[in-house]
Nucleic acid binder design. Structure first.
Lengths: 95, 95
DNA sequence: TTAATATTTAGCTTATTATCTAAATATAAG
DNA sequence: CTTATATTTAGATAATAAGCTAAATATTAA
């Protein structure tokens, strides 16, 4: 869960996720949306991948990235746990 | 929205929010839950306050902190926007 | 096999952030 | 008014993270 929140804390990475929500994209296509060097975008993609927020798959010369919605849903579950009735007894991190 | 995600990216701050979900607490009571100095906790509280994730109110010598669930709900809205039907036409940041 | 294209890895620099101790401020009590 | 308690502010340091350029890797095409 910490990797997820760390990954989501950067605005560039959140924008990448929004692009991937629309459709799958190659690393280069993603980089074209930013004024940031390709190696830096690659680094952001790696952080998203480690957090399992995206998946990648090689297709010829390109590597196609896609969003992993199930991890997004997990993160949303954390918020649901927080918003649940104030004063609930559980002291665990909601999953 | 960026302040919110930045604030949530630190595990100590997330734990503070979970404590405040159970009940309102003074700055000192919060600090007692961590092996971190009071000034550091005060700094974390300030970041949560700037993100409007918590509110504070003086009560005598103490300052009582409470969680602001409406901002949590806003953040959850971001996830709802992301999870919504893949390929939706809006290119704006969901609120 | 050589050249072109797409992406990542390595190594570095700079900015941000988490933490600390010491000092300042604010309230309450003697 | 002086002391005790609660919290924050200031200033410093060390770790983390974002960005860059240059070089390496992998695939496709000539």
């Amino acid at each position: 869960m910490n990797d997820t929140f760390k990954a989501l804390s950067d605005p560039t990475r959140r924008k990448i996720l929004q692009l991937l929500k629309e459709k799958d994209l190659s690393a280069g296509d993603i980089a074209d949306h930013f004024n940031i060097s390709k190696p830096s975008i690659s680094h952001h993609l790696n952080i998203l991948k480690q957090a399992k927020l995206v998946q990648d798959e090689r297709q010829g010369q390109s590597i196609i990235y896609s969003i992993n919605l199930s991890v997004m849903q997990e993160a949303m579950g954390w918020f649901l746990g927080m918003i649940g009735t104030k004063g609930e007894t559980s002291h665990d991190e909601p999953r």
